[in-house]
């Protein structure tokens, strides 16, 4: 059997309470998903920090390249008209 030495790395996401998104909290090593969830409970929720846990093997995460962040996010940068403050509303107009 092909025996790798180190357990794979998993990224851990926790929903702190119902109604909120799962948020990345860190990573850990585990042999499989079930163990990753149990380890995540012990490592990241010892004080009721969560009601739900997601784990994803780190190798499955694809990320944008920070070196290209400027060019990559540039299209959003010059479109001020996407924000409500771009528009002038007369002082008499209420509730807008």
């Amino acid at each position: 059997m092909n025996m790798q030495k180190e357990w794979p790395l998993w990224e851990v996401f926790i929903r702190s309470k119902q109604g909120l998104d799962h948020k990345h909290v860190g990573s850990l090593h585990a042999a499989d998903a079930e163990m990753a969830i149990q380890n995540a409970r012990d490592v990241y929720t010892r004080r009721m920090e969560g009601v739900s846990i997601w784990v994803v093997e780190s190798k499955h995460i694809h990320a944008s390249n920070p070196d290209e962040a400027e060019a990559f996010f540039d299209p959003a940068n010059d479109k001020v008209y996407r924000h409500p403050t771009f528009y002038e509303v007369p002082a008499e107009i209420k509730n807008m």
């Binding site: 030495k5 180190e6 790395l9 860190g26 990573s27 850990l28 090593h29 012990d42 490592v43 010892r46």
Partner: peptide, 23 residues
């Protein structure tokens, strides 16, 4: 003592983001 183990694990995982291997 369990917290100390947890702290060690948070920190190892932070070091791994820099390319260090746990082993």
């Amino acid at each position: 003592v369990q917290d100390e183990a947890g702290h060690g694990l948070y920190l190892y995982s932070a070091a791994e983001t820099l390319g260090a291997s746990r082993d």
